[in-house]
Design a protein around this nucleic acid. Sequence first.
DNA 1: CGTCCAGTTGACTCACCTCAAACGTGGTGG
DNA 2: CCACCACGTTTGAGGTGAGTCAACTGGACG
Lengths: 224, 224
Amino acid sequence: MTVQLAISSVAPDVSRSGSLPWTEPVCDAEDIGAPSLRFEQDCEIYGEGEEAASYYKVVSGVVRTCRFMSDGRRQIDAFHVAGDVFGIEAGPQRSLTAEAVSDCRIISYRRLPFDKAGTVSGSQQLVTHLLRNFERAQEHAVLLGRRSAVEKVAAFLLGWARQSACTGTIALAMTRLDIGDYLGLTIETVSRTLSQLERDEVIELPSVRQIRVKDLGALTAFNL
Amino acid sequence: MTVQLAISSVAPDVSRSGSLPWTEPVCDAEDIGAPSLRFEQDCEIYGEGEEAASYYKVVSGVVRTCRFMSDGRRQIDAFHVAGDVFGIEAGPQRSLTAEAVSDCRIISYRRLPFDKAGTVSGSQQLVTHLLRNFERAQEHAVLLGRRSAVEKVAAFLLGWARQSACTGTIALAMTRLDIGDYLGLTIETVSRTLSQLERDEVIELPSVRQIRVKDLGALTAFNL
DNA sequence: CGTCCAGTTGACTCACCTCAAACGTGGTGG
DNA sequence: CCACCACGTTTGAGGTGAGTCAACTGGACG
């Protein structure tokens, strides 16, 4: 649960901050040599309410952004994998908490402070990422509002199946609790639903953190 | 159910399109004289899957953006009121449908086509609106995933109470069905919950489309 | 070999949904 | 002016999908 800075702890922030409130995220090719932060599993990257001084890009590992309610309920907003950008905020404060689902490496980009009017401007790259996150959030809302447990789980699996299309087996980085808090379900319901899908020969569960999709068509049929 | 163009049907699109994929939304002062489109209640403004050639700003009235599932289920993504911008898309196609909740006036801004790489750039104003919509979508996801019926309704009322703070009475533009599809509930549950809140002296329902908040504190207590 | 913890499974409960009937209001036509 | 209808809303009764609580399982690790 400790945060470690990579060897060169000078983030690419300073050299990149221009006259715009947001600096440009560098392109993927440049990122390879860039100094990155390391976070161990379950480490907090930033907390709700903190000053939003930077945004981040995932190099490796998985990050979750989530909100906690006072009674302990948690809603996971999104999982972020390599290449995803997270931590872009509308206001000066963090509206969500970000945590490392697995050990991960992350690049930080400095965000310049808002001016008095609170206006912002963005680079092409950054706006593209923002748009993608926006669309994901909308998609997620539909999922949470109008879908049954099976439909939710199927949609979740499809999302990860796309990523691991080559292997055909999904290697989950997160626990059942994470999945539940992402889908608005309890661990028990997630577990039961996965078991049911296995009984129906839609998926196979070789191990707890591995899911093999046997019938992609059946899975897809749950959406729409 | 017919679409009518205001007198001067030349939208401010053309004169404003520069070299950027997105044109700038004009400021509020300029909008006053701008030619606007009129839509009657329940008119479709655009449909899911259509080409996303413009984005819009609401001048008056209320607009809903929503998604339909093949079995008829509907999830309302957001309600947009005067000053709100909607219809900003990540891809070339509409991911949602937009409809007029009440008769309304809307200004359209042309969006230039994506270049081959699919990159976009945005003006300060537009990015600010995008950020606001993004934050709203995140908030909405938490609402849908982890809140009970009363909490959902309370949050909904608070959102509109802020707008009509001066009068103290909320004038609803939408039906119970709209509210239900926004909150991920049925009409019956929305109705029952409102009745219960009235019995508990938290609100008053002088008429079907009017809600008077009697105990703002109690309403706020349902959040967090 | 025992401990620990994530995951699974079962029995029961409950919040919300479904179905159905009654109500109220606004519009239309006699 | 009133009778009637249409439609959105309210209310009631009963059903059910997912939550709760609790016991059990099975790897991982010492």
